[in-house]
Design a protein around this nucleic acid. Structure first.
Lengths: 171, 171
DNA sequence: TATTGTTATACTCTATAACTATA
DNA sequence: TATAGTTATAGAGTATAACAATA
Protein backbone atom coordinates (compact mmCIF):
# COMPACT_ATOMS: atom_id res chain seq x y z
CA UNK A 1 0.00 0.00 0.00
CA UNK A 2 1.12 3.51 -0.77
CA UNK A 3 1.23 6.10 1.94
CA UNK A 4 -0.07 9.57 1.49
CA UNK A 5 -0.42 12.27 4.12
CA UNK A 6 -3.40 11.53 6.26
CA UNK A 7 -5.19 14.81 6.21
CA UNK A 8 -8.88 14.17 6.05
CA UNK A 9 -9.57 15.87 2.76
CA UNK A 10 -6.96 13.83 0.99
CA UNK A 11 -7.94 10.63 2.67
CA UNK A 12 -11.61 11.22 2.12
CA UNK A 13 -11.07 12.07 -1.49
CA UNK A 14 -8.53 9.35 -2.02
CA UNK A 15 -8.89 7.13 -5.04
CA UNK A 16 -11.73 4.66 -4.78
CA UNK A 17 -15.02 3.75 -6.37
CA UNK A 18 -16.65 7.00 -5.35
CA UNK A 19 -14.07 9.01 -7.22
CA UNK A 20 -15.62 7.93 -10.46
CA UNK A 21 -18.53 10.31 -9.79
CA UNK A 22 -18.69 13.42 -11.94
CA UNK A 23 -19.37 16.85 -10.47
CA UNK A 24 -22.83 16.93 -12.02
CA UNK A 25 -23.82 13.42 -11.06
CA UNK A 26 -26.98 13.06 -9.10
CA UNK A 27 -26.67 12.91 -5.38
CA UNK A 28 -28.24 9.47 -5.12
CA UNK A 29 -25.55 7.93 -7.28
CA UNK A 30 -22.87 9.58 -5.18
CA UNK A 31 -24.51 8.24 -2.08
CA UNK A 32 -24.48 4.72 -3.47
CA UNK A 33 -20.84 4.98 -4.54
CA UNK A 34 -19.83 6.18 -1.11
CA UNK A 35 -21.70 3.34 0.52
CA UNK A 36 -20.17 0.83 -1.88
CA UNK A 37 -16.71 2.17 -1.12
CA UNK A 38 -17.23 1.80 2.62
CA UNK A 39 -18.55 -1.73 2.25
CA UNK A 40 -15.79 -2.80 -0.12
CA UNK A 41 -13.15 -1.32 2.13
CA UNK A 42 -14.45 -3.14 5.18
CA UNK A 43 -15.26 -6.37 3.40
CA UNK A 44 -11.82 -6.56 1.82
CA UNK A 45 -10.26 -6.15 5.22
CA UNK A 46 -12.51 -8.74 6.85
CA UNK A 47 -11.90 -11.28 4.09
CA UNK A 48 -8.19 -10.76 4.31
CA UNK A 49 -8.08 -11.16 8.09
CA UNK A 50 -10.40 -14.15 8.11
CA UNK A 51 -8.14 -15.82 5.59
CA UNK A 52 -4.78 -15.04 7.14
CA UNK A 53 -5.73 -15.31 10.81
CA UNK A 54 -8.31 -18.09 10.71
CA UNK A 55 -8.03 -19.75 7.32
CA UNK A 56 -11.67 -19.17 6.57
CA UNK A 57 -13.88 -17.04 4.38
CA UNK A 58 -16.70 -14.54 4.81
CA UNK A 59 -19.48 -16.80 3.49
CA UNK A 60 -18.32 -19.64 5.74
CA UNK A 61 -18.25 -17.28 8.70
CA UNK A 62 -21.65 -15.88 7.81
CA UNK A 63 -23.15 -19.32 7.52
CA UNK A 64 -21.88 -20.30 10.96
CA UNK A 65 -23.18 -17.03 12.36
CA UNK A 66 -26.62 -17.87 11.00
CA UNK A 67 -26.49 -21.28 12.63
CA UNK A 68 -25.43 -19.91 16.00
CA UNK A 69 -28.81 -18.37 16.54
CA UNK A 70 -30.63 -21.50 15.42
CA UNK A 71 -29.57 -24.12 17.97
CA UNK A 72 -32.06 -26.61 16.54
CA UNK A 73 -30.65 -26.14 13.07
CA UNK A 74 -31.71 -24.54 9.83
CA UNK A 75 -32.82 -25.96 6.53
CA UNK A 76 -30.62 -25.43 3.49
CA UNK A 77 -33.34 -23.33 1.91
CA UNK A 78 -33.47 -21.12 5.00
CA UNK A 79 -29.74 -20.55 4.73
CA UNK A 80 -30.13 -19.77 1.06
CA UNK A 81 -32.72 -17.10 1.78
CA UNK A 82 -30.86 -15.57 4.68
CA UNK A 83 -27.56 -15.43 2.90
CA UNK A 84 -29.08 -14.20 -0.33
CA UNK A 85 -27.37 -16.74 -2.56
CA UNK A 86 -28.77 -19.64 -4.55
CA UNK A 87 -29.32 -23.11 -3.25
CA UNK A 88 -26.51 -24.91 -5.00
CA UNK A 89 -23.95 -22.65 -3.43
CA UNK A 90 -25.19 -23.38 0.06
CA UNK A 91 -24.57 -27.04 -0.63
CA UNK A 92 -20.95 -26.21 -1.44
CA UNK A 93 -20.33 -24.12 1.65
CA UNK A 94 -22.09 -26.61 3.90
CA UNK A 95 -19.98 -29.40 2.38
CA UNK A 96 -16.78 -27.56 3.26
CA UNK A 97 -17.81 -26.81 6.82
CA UNK A 98 -19.06 -30.35 7.36
CA UNK A 99 -15.78 -31.75 6.06
CA UNK A 100 -14.03 -29.64 8.71
CA UNK A 101 -16.35 -30.99 11.39
CA UNK A 102 -17.73 -27.55 12.20
CA UNK A 103 -21.33 -28.27 11.29
CA UNK A 104 -23.45 -31.35 10.71
CA UNK A 105 -26.44 -32.33 8.61
CA UNK A 106 -29.30 -33.93 10.50
CA UNK A 107 -31.82 -35.84 8.41
CA UNK A 108 -35.31 -34.52 8.97
CA UNK A 109 -37.71 -37.22 10.10
CA UNK A 110 -40.84 -35.40 9.03
CA UNK A 111 -39.66 -34.51 5.52
CA UNK A 112 -37.17 -36.93 4.13
CA UNK A 113 -36.14 -34.60 1.31
CA UNK A 114 -34.88 -32.11 3.82
CA UNK A 115 -32.17 -31.96 6.43
CA UNK A 116 -31.30 -29.59 9.22
CA UNK A 117 -27.86 -28.06 9.45
CA UNK A 118 -26.43 -27.12 12.81
CA UNK A 119 -23.17 -26.28 14.52
CA UNK A 120 -21.19 -29.03 16.20
CA UNK A 121 -19.51 -28.37 19.54
CA UNK A 122 -16.26 -27.89 17.71
CA UNK A 123 -18.05 -25.50 15.39
CA UNK A 124 -19.39 -23.48 18.29
CA UNK A 125 -15.98 -23.24 19.92
CA UNK A 126 -14.27 -22.30 16.68
CA UNK A 127 -16.91 -19.77 15.80
CA UNK A 128 -16.71 -18.13 19.20
CA UNK A 129 -13.03 -17.37 18.73
CA UNK A 130 -13.46 -16.00 15.24
CA UNK A 131 -16.53 -13.97 16.16
CA UNK A 132 -14.68 -12.35 19.03
CA UNK A 133 -11.87 -11.19 16.77
CA UNK A 134 -14.35 -10.22 14.08
CA UNK A 135 -16.24 -7.95 16.41
CA UNK A 136 -13.03 -6.28 17.51
CA UNK A 137 -12.09 -5.60 13.91
CA UNK A 138 -15.49 -4.06 13.32
CA UNK A 139 -15.27 -1.91 16.41
CA UNK A 140 -11.85 -0.69 15.35
CA UNK A 141 -12.97 0.20 11.86
CA UNK A 142 -16.10 1.99 13.08
CA UNK A 143 -14.27 3.50 16.01
CA UNK A 144 -13.75 6.91 14.45
CA UNK A 145 -17.46 7.37 14.01
CA UNK A 146 -19.19 9.68 16.45
CA UNK A 147 -22.02 8.25 18.51
CA UNK A 148 -24.60 10.44 16.82
CA UNK A 149 -23.36 9.52 13.37
CA UNK A 150 -23.42 5.88 14.23
CA UNK A 151 -26.97 6.17 15.44
CA UNK A 152 -28.25 8.11 12.47
CA UNK A 153 -26.44 5.73 10.14
CA UNK A 154 -28.25 2.82 11.72
CA UNK A 155 -31.60 4.55 11.37
CA UNK A 156 -31.06 5.62 7.78
CA UNK A 157 -29.83 2.22 6.73
CA UNK A 158 -32.94 0.72 8.26
CA UNK A 159 -35.01 2.98 6.08
CA UNK A 160 -32.93 2.11 3.04
CA UNK A 161 -33.23 -1.59 3.68
CA UNK A 162 -36.97 -1.24 3.78
CA UNK A 163 -37.05 0.98 0.71
CA UNK A 164 -34.87 -1.31 -1.35
CA UNK A 165 -36.74 -4.43 -0.29
CA UNK A 166 -40.05 -2.82 -1.12
CA UNK A 167 -38.76 -1.66 -4.46
CA UNK A 168 -37.31 -5.07 -5.29
CA UNK A 169 -40.65 -6.55 -4.37
CA UNK A 170 -40.09 -8.96 -1.58
CA UNK A 171 -39.40 -9.58 2.04
CA UNK B 1 -37.52 8.91 15.71
CA UNK B 2 -38.24 7.55 12.27
CA UNK B 3 -41.77 7.32 11.00
CA UNK B 4 -42.20 4.07 9.18
CA UNK B 5 -45.33 2.17 8.24
CA UNK B 6 -46.53 -0.53 10.61
CA UNK B 7 -45.43 -3.30 8.30
CA UNK B 8 -41.91 -1.99 8.42
CA UNK B 9 -40.99 -4.11 11.40
CA UNK B 10 -41.85 -7.23 9.49
CA UNK B 11 -40.05 -6.26 6.33
CA UNK B 12 -37.08 -4.89 8.20
CA UNK B 13 -36.76 -8.06 10.15
CA UNK B 14 -37.00 -10.28 7.12
CA UNK B 15 -34.36 -12.95 6.73
CA UNK B 16 -30.96 -11.61 5.77
CA UNK B 17 -27.44 -11.18 7.06
CA UNK B 18 -28.50 -8.83 9.82
CA UNK B 19 -30.84 -11.40 11.27
CA UNK B 20 -27.86 -13.30 12.56
CA UNK B 21 -27.35 -10.63 15.21
CA UNK B 22 -28.16 -11.67 18.77
CA UNK B 23 -30.21 -9.46 21.07
CA UNK B 24 -27.15 -8.72 23.18
CA UNK B 25 -24.78 -8.07 20.32
CA UNK B 26 -23.02 -4.78 20.36
CA UNK B 27 -24.58 -2.03 18.41
CA UNK B 28 -21.57 -1.59 16.15
CA UNK B 29 -21.82 -5.12 14.89
CA UNK B 30 -25.51 -4.68 14.21
CA UNK B 31 -24.74 -1.51 12.32
CA UNK B 32 -22.22 -3.31 10.13
CA UNK B 33 -24.58 -6.20 9.44
CA UNK B 34 -27.33 -3.80 8.44
CA UNK B 35 -24.97 -1.97 6.13
CA UNK B 36 -23.73 -5.23 4.65
CA UNK B 37 -27.29 -6.35 4.05
CA UNK B 38 -28.13 -3.13 2.21
CA UNK B 39 -25.03 -3.34 0.05
CA UNK B 40 -25.50 -7.01 -0.75
CA UNK B 41 -29.14 -6.44 -1.61
CA UNK B 42 -28.32 -3.63 -3.99
CA UNK B 43 -25.19 -5.21 -5.44
CA UNK B 44 -26.97 -8.48 -6.16
CA UNK B 45 -29.65 -6.59 -8.01
CA UNK B 46 -27.18 -4.49 -9.98
CA UNK B 47 -25.10 -7.53 -10.94
CA UNK B 48 -28.17 -9.38 -12.06
CA UNK B 49 -29.49 -6.51 -14.18
CA UNK B 50 -26.10 -5.73 -15.70
CA UNK B 51 -25.82 -9.35 -16.74
CA UNK B 52 -29.31 -9.90 -18.11
CA UNK B 53 -29.88 -6.50 -19.66
CA UNK B 54 -26.40 -5.62 -20.87
CA UNK B 55 -24.34 -8.81 -20.73
CA UNK B 56 -21.72 -7.19 -18.53
CA UNK B 57 -20.48 -7.27 -14.95
CA UNK B 58 -20.03 -4.84 -12.10
CA UNK B 59 -16.20 -4.74 -12.24
CA UNK B 60 -16.30 -4.14 -15.99
CA UNK B 61 -18.86 -1.39 -15.50
CA UNK B 62 -16.82 0.13 -12.68
CA UNK B 63 -13.67 0.12 -14.75
CA UNK B 64 -15.39 1.92 -17.61
CA UNK B 65 -16.84 4.41 -15.14
CA UNK B 66 -13.35 5.15 -13.89
CA UNK B 67 -12.15 5.73 -17.43
CA UNK B 68 -15.02 8.04 -18.30
CA UNK B 69 -13.66 10.72 -16.04
CA UNK B 70 -10.14 10.32 -17.37
CA UNK B 71 -10.43 11.24 -21.04
CA UNK B 72 -6.67 11.09 -21.45
CA UNK B 73 -6.56 7.62 -20.00
CA UNK B 74 -5.43 5.96 -16.81
CA UNK B 75 -2.53 3.70 -15.98
CA UNK B 76 -3.22 0.13 -14.98
CA UNK B 77 -1.82 0.83 -11.53
CA UNK B 78 -4.21 3.77 -11.12
CA UNK B 79 -7.10 1.50 -11.96
CA UNK B 80 -5.83 -1.03 -9.50
CA UNK B 81 -5.76 1.52 -6.69
CA UNK B 82 -9.11 3.04 -7.52
CA UNK B 83 -10.88 -0.27 -7.82
CA UNK B 84 -9.20 -1.69 -4.75
CA UNK B 85 -8.11 -4.91 -6.40
CA UNK B 86 -4.68 -6.23 -7.28
CA UNK B 87 -2.82 -5.53 -10.46
CA UNK B 88 -3.16 -8.89 -12.13
CA UNK B 89 -6.92 -8.70 -12.02
CA UNK B 90 -6.95 -5.36 -13.77
CA UNK B 91 -5.06 -6.95 -16.64
CA UNK B 92 -7.81 -9.54 -16.96
CA UNK B 93 -10.68 -7.07 -16.96
CA UNK B 94 -8.87 -4.72 -19.33
CA UNK B 95 -8.20 -7.67 -21.66
CA UNK B 96 -11.90 -8.48 -21.82
CA UNK B 97 -12.99 -4.92 -22.45
CA UNK B 98 -10.29 -4.43 -25.06
CA UNK B 99 -11.35 -7.61 -26.82
CA UNK B 100 -14.86 -6.13 -27.02
CA UNK B 101 -13.49 -2.92 -28.47
CA UNK B 102 -14.76 -0.83 -25.58
CA UNK B 103 -11.39 0.40 -24.36
CA UNK B 104 -7.88 0.59 -25.77
CA UNK B 105 -4.35 0.46 -24.45
CA UNK B 106 -2.10 3.33 -25.54
CA UNK B 107 1.61 2.73 -25.17
CA UNK B 108 3.22 5.44 -23.09
CA UNK B 109 6.02 7.22 -24.94
CA UNK B 110 7.72 8.52 -21.83
CA UNK B 111 7.74 5.23 -19.91
CA UNK B 112 7.81 2.18 -22.08
CA UNK B 113 6.84 -0.17 -19.25
CA UNK B 114 3.55 1.61 -18.89
CA UNK B 115 0.46 2.14 -20.98
CA UNK B 116 -2.61 4.28 -20.70
CA UNK B 117 -6.05 2.76 -20.89
CA UNK B 118 -8.95 4.76 -22.24
CA UNK B 119 -12.46 4.40 -23.59
CA UNK B 120 -12.98 4.07 -27.31
CA UNK B 121 -15.88 5.87 -28.98
CA UNK B 122 -17.77 2.63 -28.95
CA UNK B 123 -16.94 2.27 -25.30
CA UNK B 124 -18.24 5.72 -24.52
CA UNK B 125 -21.48 5.10 -26.38
CA UNK B 126 -21.99 1.72 -24.76
CA UNK B 127 -21.16 3.03 -21.32
CA UNK B 128 -23.56 5.95 -21.67
CA UNK B 129 -26.47 3.60 -22.25
CA UNK B 130 -25.60 1.33 -19.35
CA UNK B 131 -24.88 4.21 -16.99
CA UNK B 132 -28.25 5.76 -17.72
CA UNK B 133 -30.06 2.56 -16.82
CA UNK B 134 -27.78 2.05 -13.85
CA UNK B 135 -28.59 5.40 -12.39
CA UNK B 136 -32.29 4.78 -12.79
CA UNK B 137 -31.99 1.50 -10.92
CA UNK B 138 -30.17 3.26 -8.12
CA UNK B 139 -32.73 6.02 -7.94
CA UNK B 140 -35.51 3.45 -7.77
CA UNK B 141 -33.86 1.49 -5.01
CA UNK B 142 -33.08 4.59 -2.95
CA UNK B 143 -36.38 6.20 -3.82
CA UNK B 144 -38.11 5.33 -0.57
CA UNK B 145 -35.49 7.18 1.42
CA UNK B 146 -36.49 10.56 2.79
CA UNK B 147 -34.41 13.54 1.76
CA UNK B 148 -33.12 14.10 5.28
CA UNK B 149 -32.18 10.45 5.69
CA UNK B 150 -30.39 10.46 2.39
CA UNK B 151 -28.45 13.50 3.43
CA UNK B 152 -27.46 12.23 6.85
CA UNK B 153 -26.54 8.87 5.35
CA UNK B 154 -24.18 10.62 2.98
CA UNK B 155 -22.59 12.56 5.81
CA UNK B 156 -22.22 9.61 8.13
CA UNK B 157 -20.77 7.42 5.42
CA UNK B 158 -18.23 10.13 4.71
CA UNK B 159 -17.20 9.98 8.32
CA UNK B 160 -17.06 6.21 8.24
CA UNK B 161 -14.97 6.19 5.10
CA UNK B 162 -12.48 8.45 6.77
CA UNK B 163 -12.52 6.49 10.00
CA UNK B 164 -12.02 3.13 8.31
CA UNK B 165 -9.28 4.45 6.03
CA UNK B 166 -7.46 5.99 8.96
CA UNK B 167 -7.80 2.80 10.97
CA UNK B 168 -6.60 0.66 8.08
CA UNK B 169 -3.71 3.01 7.76
CA UNK B 170 -3.67 3.98 4.16
CA UNK B 171 -5.23 5.80 1.29
C1' DT C 1 -47.06 -31.00 -9.82
C1' DA C 2 -44.20 -28.69 -6.57
C1' DT C 3 -40.40 -28.64 -3.45
C1' DT C 4 -35.74 -29.92 -1.32
C1' DG C 5 -31.46 -30.54 -2.09
C1' DT C 6 -27.56 -32.24 -5.11
C1' DT C 7 -24.76 -32.32 -9.06
C1' DA C 8 -22.60 -30.56 -13.17
C1' DT C 9 -20.96 -26.80 -15.75
C1' DA C 10 -19.03 -22.64 -16.80
C1' DC C 11 -17.60 -18.18 -15.78
C1' DT C 12 -16.03 -14.11 -13.08
C1' DC C 13 -13.38 -12.38 -9.74
C1' DT C 14 -9.80 -12.79 -6.51
C1' DA C 15 -4.89 -13.05 -4.25
C1' DT C 16 -0.33 -14.57 -4.62
C1' DA C 17 3.79 -14.97 -6.70
C1' DA C 18 7.05 -15.47 -10.38
C1' DC C 19 8.36 -13.22 -14.35
C1' DT C 20 9.68 -9.45 -18.23
C1' DA C 21 10.94 -5.33 -19.57
C1' DT C 22 12.07 -1.04 -18.40
C1' DA C 23 13.40 2.76 -15.29
C1' DT D 1 17.05 -1.89 -7.06
C1' DA D 2 12.51 -0.52 -7.95
C1' DT D 3 8.43 -0.19 -10.79
C1' DA D 4 4.69 -1.38 -14.52
C1' DG D 5 2.47 -4.75 -16.17
C1' DT D 6 1.82 -9.76 -17.51
C1' DT D 7 1.30 -14.51 -16.77
C1' DA D 8 0.32 -18.62 -14.15
C1' DT D 9 -1.98 -20.83 -10.63
C1' DA D 10 -5.35 -21.96 -7.51
C1' DG D 11 -9.40 -21.22 -5.21
C1' DA D 12 -13.76 -19.02 -3.96
C1' DG D 13 -18.11 -17.59 -5.22
C1' DT D 14 -21.70 -17.27 -8.39
C1' DA D 15 -25.84 -18.49 -11.61
C1' DT D 16 -28.07 -21.76 -14.33
C1' DA D 17 -30.04 -25.85 -15.27
C1' DA D 18 -30.82 -30.72 -15.10
C1' DC D 19 -31.75 -34.13 -11.84
C1' DA D 20 -33.44 -37.47 -7.91
C1' DA D 21 -36.18 -38.14 -4.14
C1' DT D 22 -39.96 -36.93 -1.78
C1' DA D 23 -44.17 -34.33 -0.70
Amino acid sequence: MTHLPETSAIVLNGPDLESRAQPDDHQTLRLWLRMLTCCTLIENELRSRLRTEFGTTLPRFDLMAQLLRAPDGMKMSDLSRHMMVTNGNITGIVDQLERDGLIERIKSVTDRRSSLVRLTDKGRRTFAKIAKAHEEWIRDMFGGLRETSSHSLFQSLGELKLAARTQLGGV
